[in-house]
């Protein structure tokens, strides 16, 4: 198998890696799929088409989309500001972007719940204009948006930083306006990275659990997400339903993984063309 390498340790390193991945990652996933296949096609379909499951999937997907949309705009602005401007406190802003990754989801969930509670810092003023966030789908979207902020920023920021100034200067000297350069030069070159960041964020939102369950209120048919429903089915000892729902989540994760990889391959081709 090994090709012309004088470095020893291939067998040991490969063996360790494969064994560990097999025991820690693949074995559980196979067990899950095995258990779900025991359910049978008809029963599987009954579980998935149950109103409560459908409602959980609908809430999860729509709120994940809303959160991703918010992060598409906010993340792009953040990436732009961090890559293009110099200002006091820039390092602090850059570090703040990492907060959602570093802060445990349960902590984020608790803090967001307190902020948006009816007597909270944001909840009270919002309540006075008739907007309630906690225990509503909006709260789910906010929790999802918080945990997935860094994906768009950290995928787009380096691409903006590496953007050559030559084309921009050429278009400028030919009389192009800011808006034209942005639309025709800058945006096309960051678009693949931007899309990859959005799909990573969306995938994360679909699977988010900790931050959401604190703020959502978790009312069946209204504010219950898919991840929580899988958990609830387990606690009811309804293992078949838990396996079926978890398998659907796994399938969604695989679809998002493939989509992201296709976008990233496109991104690499795009970069290659630029050189």
């Amino acid at each position: 198998m090994r090709q012309r390498s004088v470095i020893p340790g291939f067998g040991l390193a490969l063996g360790t890696t494969v064994l560990y991945l097999g025991a820690i990652v693949l074995l559980p996933l196979c067990a899950l799929i095995l258990r779900a296949s025991d359910v049978g096609v008809e029963q599987f379909w009954t579980i998935l088409s149950a109103p409560r499951t459908l409602s959980a999937i609908r809430v999860t997907v729509t709120m994940a989309l809303a959160a991703t949309l918010f992060n598409a705009v906010y993340g792009l602005l953040l990436a732009w500001v961090l890559a293009r401007y110099e200002f006091p406190g820039k390092r602090v802003l850059d570090a703040l972007v990492d907060v959602p990754f570093a802060l445990p989801t349960a902590v984020a969930g608790l803090a967001l719940t307190a902020l948006f509670a009816k007597n909270g810092w944001f909840g009270a003023p919002l309540d006075s204009i008739g907007v309630s966030v906690s225990y509503t789908p909006l709260g789910i979207a906010i929790a999802m948006a918080f945990t997935s902020v860094p994906f768009v920023v950290r995928t787009v920021q380096p691409v903006i930083e590496d953007l050559g100034t030559d084309v921009e200067e050429a278009s400028r000297s030919l009389g192009a306006s800011d808006w034209q350069i942005l639309r025709k030069v800058i945006f096309p070159s960051i678009f693949p990275a931007f899309l990859a960041g959005c799909s990573l964020a969306f995938a994360r939102c679909l699977g988010e659990f900790g931050a959401v369950i604190f703020i959502a209120g978790n009312q069946p048919m209204k504010t219950e997400i898919v991840a929580l429903l899988a958990f609830i089915r387990l606690e009811e000892y309804n293992y078949g339903a838990a396996a079926a729902i978890a398998t659907v989540m796994l399938a969604m994760a695989f679809v998002m993984l493939i989509v992201t990889n296709i976008i990233q391959a496109w991104h690499l081709r795009y970069l290659g063309r630029g050189d």
Binding site: A31, G207, A227, A230, F231, A242, A253
Partner: peptide, 11 residues
């Protein structure tokens, strides 16, 4: 890429 909940259920 896998939701922690899925990992937990799988275990």
């Amino acid at each position: 890429s896998i939701s922690p909940i899925v990992a937990g259920v799988a275990y």
